[in-house]
């Protein structure tokens, strides 16, 4: 077995610790970004729904500004955002290189993306249900937590899966610029040194990660969806 692997994956077999390191880095970037970006993005998504047209705390000027900001950041290509944001990253993290430094642009890219996804998921919550909660005397934040986030949960989970998968793809890109993760390994080592087996194995590891997220997300969404499942 070992001989077989050494024959087909000559470079990978000498780099096992590098792969372990890179996998941990990718997981680290994904997890921390998902946590920070998830909370902030969820909050902004909720604000967009509450203050938007027909929202329960309708405030069109506030909504318009927030909406434009979200659109603005969504419009910036990530590879350019990485470069533009570097001075800012240096102020916050102290350096623009390394996995931790990657998290700054990742968070900034993920927040508007996720906020929009959350907004769409919550707009799908039947407005009649929201009205009935108002008629039962729920406060605005009561409606957010007990109606929007509960009724919209299956869709939020599905949106989170989409966001996480696109986040993993961003970590790969960020890694090549700032260093770190499986993306860095695949491009910097595998591609630039013509060690195709390294690129290939990096890809496999990323795909495993993506599929795992997809499968877990699907299961959770199905378990929380009582509307369509009989």
């Amino acid at each position: 077995m070992s001989a077989f692997l050494t024959h087909y994956l000559p470079n990978v077999m000498t780099m096992i610790p590098d792969f372990e390191q890179a996998t941990i880095e990718t997981l680290y970037m994904t997890f921390v970004t998902a946590l920070i970006g998830g909370i902030v993005g969820l909050f902004i998504g909720v604000l967009l729904v509450l203050t938007g047209p027909e929202g329960i705390s309708e405030n069109i000027p506030f909504y318009t500004v927030l909406d434009k900001i979200v659109n603005f950041f969504r419009a910036i290509p990530f590879i350019i955002l990485l470069a533009v944001i570097a001075p800012f990253t240096r102020i916050i993290v102290g350096t623009a290189i390394g996995t931790t430094a990657c998290i700054v642009p990742l968070v900034i890219a993920v927040i508007p993306f996720y906020a929009r996804q959350v907004q769409n998921a919550l707009l799908d919550v039947d407005s009649g249900i929201v009205e009935s909660a108002q008629a039962m005397g729920s406060s605005t934040w009561g409606i957010v937590f007990r109606v929007y986030l509960k009724e919209g949960l299956p869709k939020i989970i599905r949106s989170s899966v989409v966001t996480l998968i696109s986040l993993i793809s961003l970590t790969a890109m960020a890694g090549t610029v700032a260093g770190g993760g499986l993306g860095n390994l695949a491009v910097m080592v595998g591609y630039q040194r013509y060690q195709n087996d390294v690129t290939f194995v990096s890809l496999i590891l990323i795909l495993i990660l993506v599929f795992a997220i997809q499968i877990i997300g699907d299961i959770l969404a199905r378990l929380t969806d009582h509307e369509n499942a009989k």
Partner: peptide
């Protein structure tokens, strides 16, 4: 909000919460 808690409201399209059981729907208010 207190007033609303003391006025029941029923709707044409029922407007029950899909993510809650019958019991939890009745508990909500």
């Amino acid at each position: 909000r207190q007033l609303r808690k003391n006025i029941g409201f029923i709707f044409q399209h029922f407007n029950l919460m899909n993510a809650r059981t019958i019991e939890d729907n009745i508990l909500y208010p």
